[in-house]
């Protein structure tokens, strides 16, 4: 899709780059926009995810544009770009950092929110306590439930306590059992 808007240079600011530098990704400022990251990205070859452009926008300080970009979530964190970057920029880690900022700013994908809610509820992002899994386990001579929070409700309560304490529930807008 063509974006016909002019980027207003007066709105460029260093803040996002500063934040990233402070978080330990200071090498990002040395980026020479060579495109190795985009070209090397297995996700980018199949999707609209363009690593270099995201980094570029972050450097320009187009904060909202970066954090609201749904392609930010298409990185598989394989780390190939990081390995091949001629400036040794911690690209994958920086993308993860941008995702954290995006969530803080409220740009969470509904799917991710769903998974998070499930995690708070069950202690598993992907619960494996339904009949399908327990039957499979039993057929293999295993106990129906794995030795995780599925077996130990007390441990689950501890996990939930931790998530509450760290504010994770608020972050993912968990409002209790629905």
């Amino acid at each position: 899709m063509l974006d016909r808007r002019i980027i207003d240079g007066n709105k460029f600011n260093q803040k996002l780059a500063d934040e990233m530098a402070e978080a330990g990704y200071d090498r990002i400022r040395a980026c020479i926009q060579c495109g190795t990251c985009t070209a090397t990205c297995p996700a980018g070859r199949r999707t609209a995810y363009r690593t270099r452009q995201l980094i570029r926008k972050a450097l320009l300080g187009l904060r909202e544009e970066v954090l609201s970009d749904p392609t930010l979530w298409l990185c598989t964190t394989c780390g190939t770009c990081q390995e091949r970057c001629p400036r040794k920029i911690e690209i994958t880690d920086a993308i993860t950092f941008l995702r954290n900022l995006a969530v803080e700013a409220g740009y969470m994908r509904p799917e991710h929110r769903g998974v998070s809610h499930k995690f708070i509820k069950t202690g598993h992002a992907v619960p494996i306590d339904d009949e399908k899994w327990s039957k499979l386990r039993e057929s293999l001579g295993l106990p129906p439930l794995p030795p995780t929070v599925h077996c130990y409700p007390k441990a689950l309560r501890e996990v939930q306590k931790l998530l509450k304490k760290t504010g994770f529930d608020k972050l993912v807008e968990y409002k209790g059992d629905d």
Binding site: Q33, G35, A39, T40, G44, R50, R52
Partner: peptide, 13 residues
């Protein structure tokens, strides 16, 4: 050869 074409912003092969 896999390279991004910087001008168009797209990966090329």
């Amino acid at each position: 050869v896999h390279a991004e074409d910087i001008s168009t912003g797209r990966p090329t092969r």
